[in-house]
Each structure stands twice: as C-alpha cells, then as structure tokens.
Design a binder for these strands. Structure first.
Lengths: 155, 155
DNA sequence: TTCTATTTGGACCGAAACAGTACTGTTTCA
DNA sequence: TGAAACAGTACTGTTTCGGTCCAAATAGAA
C-alpha cells in the first residue's frame, strides 16, 4: 500500500498540536485534545523524545515540548523518527540483495529514494498546520502528466 | 520503514528485464535471468497481467510481454499495481478517521501524497535501466537543504 | 528530609499483514 | 491427444505493527 504507519500519522497530529502551545504538555492532555488514545500518544511521544524531536520532562508537572519550531520540522524527519530510515528497497546501504549481480539495476533505487526524501523534506509541520505547501513549492514539484501507463490511470 | 514491498521490487526487476527483449518470455526464463524464485516471479507477473502492465499469452509457447514500452511505465504505476494505491495515510479518500474533528489538519495529507506520487510518476522503468533520471529531472526536484531538524540529520 | 503523586522510560504480548509456496484448473500449440 | 504455460485459490511461516503493562525518575508538599 506504500502507506506510513499509524504511529507516524499520530506523531504529526501530536506535534502540530504540541506546537500550538509553547509549554510542556503531558500525554494525557495531548490525548484528550487530539482524540488519539492515551497509551498510543504516550508511545509516540516517547519515540519522538529519543529522536530529539521533542524534549521530555520527567516527574511531576513534567511533559513534552517541541525541540524545534514547527517550521523547522519536516515530514521526512518525523517519518524517519517513527518508521526508521526512508529507503524503499532493502538492497540499499549495504542491505541484503540475493540477486544483486543479476538484477541489473544496481543502486538505481537510490534515486527513487532521494526523490521521495526530497519531496518529504520540503514539507514542514507548519505547512501541515496551515495550507502553505502549495504556495511555498509553487504547485508541488513536477507536473506528473497522468502517472503514465494504461488508459485507466488508476488513481 | 516506509519501504515498498519486496514484490514491487521484484516487479521492477522483472519488468526491466522483460523490456530488454521484445518477445514473449516465460516466468521460468525470467526467474533464471533475474535470480528471483520462480513461484514468486510467476506471482508478480500474474498480478501485473491483471493490471494491464504486461500482456499474457497462455498455452504452449506462451509467456509474458510488456504492454507498454519501458519509457511509458512509471515507478508509480508499478507500485500501484502491486501494492495498491499510494496514499500515505488512511484518512484520505473516505477512509476512517476516528479523530477527524480533533486532529486539526483535515486533508493536509493529500498534499504529501501528491508530492510522493509526483516524485514516483516522474521516474520510469527506462530511467531505472539507465541512469537517466538525474538528467531528465535536472537534479531530482527540490533542493532539500538537509531534511531539517536536529544537528544529526540522520540520513 | 522524607514521602507521595505524577509522569516518563522501557519491556512485553497479541494481532494483523505480508512473503512465499503449493496445488488444481484452463488454455493453446505441436 | 499430449505437453507446455498461464490463472486462480488456498495455505503457512514470518515479520512487523499496534497496543498494554510495569518499573524508574522527578517535583512538590508535609
């Protein structure tokens, strides 16, 4: 399906919400204001804390706060924090490839990965909050005629 | 991990190999020349046949051949054929979203999806075969400063 | 100083999706 | 008529993901 995990989706929602108030917020509060189940939002924030995207404050009156302003956090960074590195195939960066010699296209996936990364790096959480993406990028990169192949062009 | 399924990877390899010879090819032959296990390559080709990307010829001396030249088949089309539609989140196109009212960013993901689709639609199988991607796109879209966030900028 | 309430941190477990395989049926050509 | 090759379905093992539970840590009050 080429979809990212629910956790990443939750992470974006939680981060945007977190960026709207400039004070430490607990996961229960964040859960109530976002509608995300409390254990889940806690887990997401935990991961984000280890990745340095949010800063955690333990103990009573603790909570989380953003480590960077919304404008400096890209979608790509969030995805990498939750889902791990963005690389569409396993046969990159030293990964296993049992058919490396025969597959013929050695390392071509790197370009695809770079394209994805670029697209995701150009969108920040601030863009998600507002509708500033189209304005900033002038129409979302390349035109993409009709995705090519087939009369159907299944959307 | 935001990675596509192995089947899709296999599909690209098989299709590129299939595009190198302009005649019907059986899955055993394709299996030997690509190194992909025979049952798997057969499964992939079956799926691609139902999606109209390859044309199947049944019976003795049958096999598969491309329905379109390599230049007209985009990576996005292959991914859609194998993995299904490209939409990073489930809360698009009428999907479930239990927190739609509270999450705050209604439909913002559509832009992200569009960015991904554009990036993947701009790359064809012919580009995978050669190294023509960079040339054609003039450097793969947007600059992407350093993916933003954090001093590490985990690649 | 000590105790307690609050909150994060890390480990664990069940469920779902996926990759891979095998088998049977249908079609076509020699 | 027989062999070759695709089409479809079903099954199984593995991996990953989503969610839950318990332990460690901190701030504040007594």
């Amino acid at each position: 399906m080429l979809k990212l995990s629910k956790l990443t989706d939750y992470a974006v929602v939680a981060l945007v919400r977190l960026g709207q108030k400039d004070e430490v917020t607990t996961s229960p509060v964040l859960s109530r204001s976002t509608g995300i189940p409390e254990p889940t939002v806690a887990k997401v924030l935990k991961i984000l804390a280890t990745q340095g995207i949010v800063i955690s404050q333990r103990g009573a009156r603790g909570g989380y706060r953003l480590a960077y302003p919304l404008e400096e956090i890209s979608i790509a960074a969030v995805i990498q924090a939750i889902d791990g590195p963005i690389s569409l195939t396993t046969c990159v960066d030293g990964g296993e490839c049992d058919a490396r010699s025969t597959c013929g296209l050695g390392g071509q996936w790197d370009m695809v990965n770079a394209a994805i990364r670029n697209a995701l790096s150009a969108i920040t959480l601030a863009d998600m909050k507002n509708h500033t993406v189209l304005d900033r990028l002038g129409g979302l990169g390349n035109p993409a005629p009709s995705m090519l192949v087939g009369p159907e062009a299944t959307a």
